[in-house]
Design a protein around this nucleic acid. Structure first.
Lengths: 338, 338
DNA sequence: CTGAAAGCGCTAACAT
DNA sequence: ATGTTAGCGCTTTCAG
């Protein structure tokens, strides 16, 4: 664990010269000494101490990625959507030469503290957060933070989301175009869940386009887990609702519905058509393959990281809110009815 | 961003007193001043600078978790096994009060450098590594490192793995007990892949127990992806191999085989029985549900983190190699034959 | 192009 | 129980 000072002594120069070499400041060091010192660095296997560097620079070249344990209790990385998204984030951040600190948090208090502890250069919140919590975090440590799938009207807040409305709209419209008229929307319907509300609005807009009204909406209120889906699926198979198709606001929920319905003698898509949301790789693996509203996670991650680094580098940017497009991935879980 | 010094000035005491309060050293500070300083810390919202602390302590309270981009090119976190495992690791590490730095690496060079850069207190390699690379890393930075699913005869190397032999054995034995006699083993068969070799040995051991010999082994050599599985599945459906059951060394591979076979008119498990490996949550979602050799990821992660921290805390420990148990999770993809 | 001095925020080791 | 001194490894600033 050689230090700058040690290398300087071996080379018979000052620490500053070595420092300049380490930082590639060719303009400040003659070519000869530069090369010589480089050879010593190699020989004595010098690696800079980032703690020392961060201390003086007041910045650690580190991005903290937070996921909340609120949403899915227990292991957040069991969720394939979050995992895959995180993987994309990690690789883009690394491409930018920054380190990634991961933290699943319960209290947001600890989130802000971590940022300050480490003098993080930026942060990403992977799970939705209400606007007031966003403010709190921003207030406690002023570094660029991107909030994913959150909704904050404040123009300075950096957010990346998807076109939720369109998601609900295209899914419903497709079902309608296949002849379905009694269509349920399944998901967690709660005033705090802006996301689902937008999808619902899209759903209603599509209904209206086909001459129906909001009173034709069938809301299947449920938490968005596989298990809850199974319950709902059996209820559907037992004709507790008068519908022929379901737009589920999460793939896992849709898959649960599929299984629950099937266990009760219902054949998908013959007896019930189904559309999911997220387009997980799972959709291709199950039988029948699940038609789903797809968000391009890679693109979304790219947008997040780009937005973050534009902000870190202080580039003037009016575009603080990014909305990613969605599209319908057609597979086998929807059947036309006459 | 108040500093120790600032708090000390406000309080009219020395920095050391404040430092002692921050570090909870009650024995060194009178109760009155302790409480008073605590109130100031709260009032001025002081948070310690971990870079400074790490610099002097030569340790950053940080564990680096590495995953190699070798195995699955692209996004490692698409792999549900690795993601879920990582999630468990993260939560256990955090419980121990340490920070988690994630890094997917291609060259191991950069891995060792990161550790030294940050004065990491420990590291975990989530993906298998050959013994010589393990040595190299250990040589470059002497902190406790746990290697998962790697095989290093060196007794001082910390490793956590599973009983691969038993995995192959119980899967095969179960198929045999269900009357199958012509059983294939599907996986990536390569001399560097010690893991699969062990599973193969277990497979052969089970065959022998039922009066067969190694010559009865049917090796279906393939990479372990869903797509490769599909190819293999269609080959099987077209009777290119004379077998009634397959033990696949990965769930995703098994699922691919399932789909490939099905597309070619083969009904699972009626025409072909299937056992996977890893027991991903997927196994419960697909139809038919996949029987699989289960490794308890939570237990495995717990073992890794315990081993790591025992080593960090310098507790004498002869038990540097941990082998986790596996068991067969019976579901619906195996049918008895007469 | 090269160097000397000062200090980032913290803690260990000694005073008092 | 509290304070003083010194220094972790690096960079910034200012002089040569």
């Amino acid at each position: 664990m050689a230090t700058l000072k040690e290398i300087a002594q071996k080379a018979g120069v000052s620490v500053m010269t070595v420092s300049n070499v380490v930082n590639g400041k060719h303009s400040k060091v003659s070519k000869d000494t530069f090369d010589y010192i480089l050879s010593l660095i190699d020989k004595y296997d010098y690696v800079p101490n980032l703690n020392a560097r961060s201390l003086v620079k007041k910045s650690s070249h580190t991005i903290v990625v937070f996921t909340s344990t609120f949403v899915s209790h227990g292991n957040v990385f069991k969720d394939p959507y979050l995992s895959e998204f995180f993987g994309e984030l990690e690789s883009f951040i690394r491409e930018n030469g920054y380190y990634v600190l991961v933290q699943t948090v319960d209290a947001l208090q600890s989130a802000a503290a971590s940022l300050r502890n480490w003098h993080a250069d930026g942060a990403i919140f992977m799970s939705p957060l209400p606007a007031e919590k966003i403010r709190k975090i921003q207030a406690q440590y002023p570094c660029p933070v991107v909030f994913v799938d959150s909704n904050d009207p404040e123009p300075s807040t950096l957010t990346v989301g998807i076109n939720e409305f369109k998601g609900g709209y295209i899914a419903t419209k497709y079902l309608l175009s296949q002849g379905h008229r009694r269509i349920g929307i399944a998901g967690f319907y709660d005033e705090s869940a802006k996301i689902v509300q937008e999808r619902y609005k899209g759903y209603v807009a599509a209904l209206k386009e086909f001459g129906m009204s909001e009173s034709d909406a069938v809301i299947l209120h449920t938490v968005t887990t596989y298990e809850a889906g199974m319950k709902l699926g059996s209820a559907l198979a037992n004709h507790e609702y008068d519908i022929t198709a379901v737009f589920a606001t999460a793939d896992l929920l849709a898959l649960g519905i599929m299984e629950g319905a099937r266990l009760n003698g219902c054949v998908i898509p013959r007896d019930l058509s189904l559309i999911g949301f997220d387009n997980l790789s799972l959709c291709d693996i199950v039988t029948p393959k699940l038609t789903s509203v797809s968000q391009d996670l890679r693109l979304k991650a790219r947008s997040v990281v780009d937005l973050l680094f534009r902000s870190i580098e202080g580039k003037a940017d009016s575009d603080n809110k990014i909305v990613c497009d969605v599209q319908l991935e057609l597979r086998q879980s929807v059947q036309a009815v006459s």
